[in-house]
Amino acid sequence: MDKVSQMTDGRVKVGSGTLYNLLEQFLGSGIIIQTKAEGRRRNYVLSEKGKVVLRCEYERLCTQAEDYRKMFL
């Protein structure tokens, strides 16, 4: 949670309840995969499907930013 805040210069803050629900949701839809569980610590990585979803979202945002540049800059 702290890392998310650091990575985004404090712009994005994720509460523990939201993080837990998102992990459950991402696991359920196959966006992430659990790699190992050491005690209560669990590690997850992006699945191939997750990488595609992330890439699509990045491209969608880039297109929107490009539209903004064309119209207003």
């Binding site: 803050k13 523990s16 939201t18």
Partner: peptide, 14 residues
């Protein structure tokens, strides 16, 4: 404190 739920869409779905 940092709220427990920070994404209304995720919270609403639950």
């Amino acid at each position: 404190p940092l709220p427990l739920e920070t994404d209304p869409e995720v919270e609403l779905a639950s």
